[in-house]
Amino acid sequence: HNLTITQGKLFFHYNPKLCLSEIHKMEEVSGTKGRQERNDIALKTNGDQASCENELLKFSYIRTSFDKILLRWEPYWPPDFRDLLGFMLFYKEAPYQNVTEFDGQDACGSNSWTVVDIDPPLRSNDPKSQNHPGWLMRGLKPWTQYAIFVKTLVTFSDERRTYGAKSDIIYVQTDATNPSVPLDPISVSNSSSQIILKWKPPSDPNGNITHYLVFWERQAEDSELFELDYCLKGLKLPSRTWSPPFESEDSQKHNQSEYEDSAGECCSCPKTDSQILKELEESSFRKTFEDYLHNVVFVPRKTSSGTGAEDPRPSRKRRSLGDVGNVTVAVPTVAAFPNTSSTSVPTSPEEHRPFEKVVNKESLVISGLRHFTGYRIELQACNQDTPEERCSVAAYVSARTMPEAKADDIVGPVTHEIFENNVVHLMWQEPKEPNGLIVLYEVSYRRYGDEELHLCVSRKHFALERGCRLRGLSPGNYSVRIRATSLAGNGSWTEPTYFYVTDYLDVPSNIA
């Protein structure tokens, strides 16, 4: 807008934040220059609390790290170098490059900038070799853009010569660093050979998330399962459950009422301010606690030095998902009996873990797994792929695949051998790939016309006998059925096997 004052003059007093240069501009645009008398524009009460600059400061050096910015700028000295009290560095987070010096300023003089007072450097006698002032900004957020400017702080001049310097606002972004852990990993099994893994992005990506790394490792069953005799009275049979499938998407929606109208769909109840505040506090606490764990609990591995020492970490090797089922080394339970199943799973520490690289999504279907087997899954978020990966501390989750139908069934015939004193040795093959492992066998036998009897055969007993022995049988026709019990439950009964026990007292003698 054009402003013209045809008559009258300007009068400025007691404006401590208004620089004289701005008042002189007002004289020019209003056409009143030359009308004012000496005392109409006070030299001592206008701009006496402001830094009124008329020179431009330029930054000469900028260096960044993930949490620091090192700045240096060209030296500046007023005509009387004693008038320079120091520099004021202003900075704040700036997602967009549209910041002005006066953003967030209120009537009390406060604003949204963080201000650092910096002492002037030592003055050199040689004007050509003056030290460049600077400042190291610490405690910054990774991968965050900051708006920065600097200006001088000078003393009051009796001659009211307006001098000083100020830089333009520059924008500097800190470097990326390792992201925080992925949030809320959930693993479920939808079949006997697959596990579905879902997660949420890290709360602090500290860069642009480029991919996720998912490692999985087959877990050995508890050692007590191999040692305890679950045929003993009072000892509860062990059981394991597989990871249940995901709930429906509708039930997972946030901010939804727990109660549904019987007449149909209901609208979600909005969260109160107290609920939102509580969630923010919980989120802040979780982030602080995660940072504490990362800094205190997890110790970084030592990389190899120039002395030739090897990095103890196993090298990563990509495998196809079809090879995942046989990740671990199978060892027989008892070496003397080769027909026992290889369900003991000690994992070799030198073995390469299978892994998958996930790009542009937060889910993965891990296939080719062994049925009813526990897996430990390790999830890392990465925001750099080359020249070397920059990934987060791992988040861990466990899951067990679903049982395989008929995996616990005894394959092959049940054979028998009759000894003296009416002892019958029953023999059968253990299931080759049971659900988890076989903890015991149930032997059901009966003599024709009598009630059915049951015998429990422990895992250890089966390994020693290759089956079991029935003792003290009365003469007669017998039928026997056997079924295995694994961590997933009972298998199917075998087809009945028949044998006849004679009275050993009636056996004919070869003595003449």
Rank of each mutant, 00 (worst) to 15 (best):
L470F: 04
A335T: 12
V299L: 06
H454A: 04
H461W: 12
D229Y: 14
P205S: 08
P387G: 10
G322N: 04
F298M: 14
L225P: 05
G368C: 04
A263E: 10
V457P: 00
H294R: 10
S398Y: 14
G436A: 13
H425T: 07
T272P: 12
K287D: 09
H416M: 11
I209C: 12
K357Q: 04
K317P: 07
Y396L: 10
S363D: 06
L237Y: 03
S257W: 08
S479H: 03
V296K: 14
G264I: 11
R286Q: 06
S274H: 12
T272G: 07
V331K: 06
G306Y: 09
L213F: 04
P431Y: 02
I276S: 09
K302Y: 11
V334I: 15
T210Q: 05
L379H: 00
F499Q: 00
D229C: 05
F298P: 04
V439G: 08
F499T: 01
A407C: 01
W242R: 07
N360C: 15
K357Y: 07
E227I: 11
C269K: 03
E290T: 08
R286Y: 09
C391E: 02
Q275S: 07
T415L: 13
Q384V: 08
E249C: 10
H416C: 09
A484Q: 02
T272H: 13
E221P: 06
S458A: 08
R400E: 09
P354R: 11
V359S: 09
V359Q: 13
I438F: 02
E378M: 05
D291C: 08
Y396P: 06
L426M: 14
N383D: 04
V414E: 01
S320G: 14
F226H: 13
D250N: 15
G322D: 14
G264R: 12
R481A: 12
F372Y: 12
I410A: 10
H254K: 12
K271M: 07
K406P: 07
H461S: 10
Q256C: 10
S223M: 14
V393M: 11
Y375H: 06
L473A: 02
I418N: 11
H454N: 04
K236E: 13
S509H: 01
R469P: 03
F289C: 03
Y396E: 04
R313Y: 09
N490W: 15
E430R: 05
T343V: 07
L235M: 11
E356K: 14
E290L: 13
S367Y: 07
S248H: 03
A407R: 11
V501G: 00
D506Y: 12
D323N: 11
V324P: 11
L237E: 15
R471K: 12
E281K: 15
F246L: 10
T415F: 07
K357E: 12
V214N: 01
S243K: 03
E430T: 08
E350G: 14
L213A: 14
L487R: 13
I366W: 01
I482K: 00
N360Y: 06
L280I: 13
S257M: 05
G306L: 07
N421L: 11
N360E: 13
L321A: 12
R318A: 10
M427V: 08
P431Q: 01
R301V: 07
V443Q: 00
V359G: 09
A263Q: 11
I377R: 00
V393H: 13
S398C: 14
A395C: 09
L235F: 08
R447A: 09
S479F: 03
P403L: 09
P413Q: 15
R471P: 09
L280R: 12
S320V: 11
E378H: 14
S363P: 06
K302A: 04
G322I: 12
L473H: 01
V423I: 07
T343Q: 07
W216D: 00
E282V: 10
S283W: 03
A336F: 10
T343L: 07
E282L: 11
E356S: 07
L437R: 14
S268T: 15
S304A: 04
L505D: 09
V443P: 01
A220T: 14
G207D: 03
K406G: 13
S320M: 06
T415A: 12
P354Y: 15
F419E: 00
T288E: 14
Q219M: 06
C269M: 03
E388D: 15
S492Y: 02
F298K: 02
Y504N: 04
S341V: 13
V331I: 15
V327M: 08
R316F: 15
T485G: 01
G436V: 14
E221V: 04
A309K: 13
F285L: 11
M402K: 15
R318N: 09
I482N: 00
E227F: 11
T347N: 04
I377D: 00
P238G: 13
M427K: 15
L225N: 05
N477A: 06
L280A: 15
P238K: 08
L440V: 08
W216S: 03
G412Q: 11
V424T: 03
A309L: 12
S304G: 12
P431G: 04
S367P: 13
E465T: 11
T347E: 12
A335S: 08
E247G: 08
T485W: 09
S274F: 01
G412L: 10
T497A: 08
L487E: 03
E362T: 11
D273Q: 13
P475T: 10
N295K: 11
K236W: 09
E356H: 11
P244A: 09
V334Y: 09
L379D: 00
P413T: 10
H254T: 12
P349K: 13
L364G: 05
L213Q: 13
I366A: 04
A309M: 07
S257Q: 08
S486G: 11
K302N: 10
E221T: 05
S243I: 08
G368D: 06
I482R: 00
P354M: 13
S398I: 10
Y230E: 05
Y441W: 00
E247A: 10
G436D: 13
D450T: 09
T288H: 05
R376L: 07
T303F: 08
A381E: 02
E249I: 06
K233Y: 12
P413H: 15
K432W: 09
K287T: 11
S486I: 00
N421F: 04
P475V: 08
N295D: 08
S304N: 15
V214Q: 00
T494S: 13
K460H: 08
N360D: 03
H416R: 05
V439H: 09
L232Y: 10
G476Q: 00
L321P: 10
E452R: 06
V507Q: 15
G325E: 06
P332T: 06
V358L: 06
D222W: 14
D273I: 14
G476D: 00
I410M: 04
H425F: 15
K357P: 12
A399L: 12
N422I: 02
H211T: 05
T272N: 11
S304C: 05
W216K: 11
E224G: 10
D291R: 08
E249R: 08
E350T: 10
E260H: 15
Y498M: 11
D229Q: 07
V324M: 10
R319S: 11
